[in-house]
Design a protein around this nucleic acid. Structure first.
Lengths: 331, 331
DNA sequence: CTGAAAGCGCTTACAG
DNA sequence: CTGAAAGCGCTTACAG
């Protein structure tokens, strides 16, 4: 039993021929009988499940929040798998409210650690650190010296602001979220970046809110701002898409009739909207980074390493390069 | 030990005051000491992990395939959680190739069952049924009397075809996938539906492939087809978005300069592109249905129930309602 | 290096 | 209903 366990876990030292031969035979027999270890038995004695959770943002009223998170999740999944961990998914509903009572993820000891995506209410933050031995904050409002992974959102804002200025636009608007959704750290940071870059050119940034579907006045008001001298900077690609739709309904095309730039990115945009000028961002790699931070800490039983700030690069696009319209002054 | 276990698992029968009082006390003490069950110990003796996997489509070359799957995954997650199961995520890499050797999801006994998303290579299908005691096929090429959940894709095609015909278009194109991606069952079924509806109006369907980014000839060729008499029907919303971008680069707007309809849907479209005419589809509910099918079978230790075919409804949109262009004949 | 033994924290017959 | 006991399948000191 001892020997078998040691062989299968690769903990057999020594290289005497007899030893090597025996190890070989153990593996052969295990293979022949299709032996697969029992994770539960191992977990019981080692007191480690080798399972890591991912806490996904979703609000009670809104069951499908932030679809872009999936890209990060897949990155986390690859990172965890490579290190021999299993990924368990948990939604916000699992931690708070009555549902938490039914959720085995928190009610029982199932996880060695948890990677939290997006910003969470403070109550959740506290509850989590109570229940889970090891937490990594990814793309979250929580930012400390260790154990956090985040995109450099200020840089994203700076890039967008600079691009719009460089393209020669004089009237610059930034689309922000309705008040109830403004709690993610990126909102402020991007805005600061944009304002900083625009101010350096002696210009100002006007704030506008995303026009809602079905609210014709809002859509009309937004469309009125769209002139060849104006560039709109959006926080998310979703806002960019929504704005494009509102404009299109009035026969306006971004890049031709007004400028459009975006502080965010998504994986398939090269195919879906190659022309959108934007700050690129590889969410998949952010997921990988978070997973690696978690597994290194678990494997070596050490505290987390330094937090990581992930860079972004500007992607030029024709939504900021009005091709033939002479009314747009160039620098 | 016996009594405590029974109380906490709600298996204590009898309602004598003494019994009820004792049960109360056990729960109190457990609560006070923050007792949380050990999932591993339970799993070892019951031989059930109460964990269900979701196998997510991703191809080795392409680490981020089919982002819309996330909507289904969240539905599955809610369904599993409500029934007291934990959701584990596994990518295709986990089952095949060398990576499988590292993947604990299959190497050890971790799952009671697996929900497979999307179509999988046949080798994977076989391997899965070998390794996992209980499999549900969701949105997959595998279709049997029991244990499958799928959208009625023929119906989606019929709806799209009918809508285009009703709008009065005489020249109808359908965008299909490049040959290497045509293996999902929906591709054929949607096409059959479209053709059937269009043929009933005495018209024909022309096939075209999605113009690729960076291939200017392809984009130009696609754009040439875009005339007020022509309606394009796309398989996926991604194709619709890509086509819209290619058109926009040439100053063309769907609904004004050509017709556009889509056989698929995505959750946020109401916000992102309200005007797109499409066959609606609630992926989240498909996930819920798959999860329920799985947990009912696991809980009652019975075979799967009958497979489910999920309906869709047509969503009218202005991409099929050319507002003022007189060159489009009306019915 | 290796074998025999203890023990991880539960559930489940079993006898009372 | 309840208590004492066995046992799920592993890993880990321990003695040889």
């Amino acid at each position: 039993m001892n020997t078998v366990s040691r062989v299968l876990n690769g903990k057999l030292k020594g290289s005497y021929p007899a030893v090597v031969r025996k190890a070989e035979r153990v593996r052969q027999i295990a293979n022949k009988h299709g032996y697969r270890a029992n994770a539960a038995a191992r977990a019981m004695v080692t007191r480690r499940t080798r399972q890591v959770g991912v806490l996904v943002p979703n609000t009670p009223g809104n069951r499908f929040t932030h679809p872009l998170a999936y890209e990060t999740i897949l990155g986390i999944n690859e990172g965890l798998q490579r290190a021999g961990y299993v990924m368990v998914m948990a939604r916000l509903d699992d931690v708070r409210g009555d549902l938490a009572k039914q959720s085995r993820v928190f009610e029982e000891h199932v996880l060695d650690g948890m990677i939290v995506l997006d910003s969470m209410p403070r109550e959740v933050e506290r509850r989590l650190e109570e229940l889970i031995p090891d937490v990594v904050w990814c793309d979250s409002n929580v930012w400390r010296d260790h154990g956090c992974v985040r995109r450099d959102e200020l840089h994203a804002g700076l890039l967008a602001g600079q691009a719009v200025v460089d393209a020669g636009y004089k009237h610059i608007c930034m689309v922000t979220y309705p008040a109830e959704h403004r709690d993610h750290f990126s909102t402020q940071q991007r805005f600061s970046g944009v304002r900083q870059a625009v101010a350096a050119a002696g210009l100002k940034v006007e704030i506008m809110t995303e026009p809602r579907t079905g609210h014709e006045e809002e859509r009309a008001a937004a469309a009125e701002k769209l002139t060849p001298n104006t560039a709109i900077i959006t926080n998310s690609i979703y806002q960019a898409l929504a704005l494009r739709s509102a404009a299109e309904e009035r026969g306006l095309i971004p890049g031709r009739d007004f400028g459009l730039a975006c502080c965010d990115d998504m994986h398939q945009l090269d195919r879906l909207w190659p022309g959108l000028a934007r700050a690129t961002f590889a969410r998949y790699d952010m997921g990988l980074a978070a997973a690696n931070m978690m597994t290194r800490s678990l494997d070596h039983r050490t505290p987390h390493e330094m937090s990581q700030l992930l860079p972004c690069v500007w992607h030029d696009g024709q939504t900021l390069q009005p091709p033939t319209n002479p009314s747009i002054p160039t620098v």
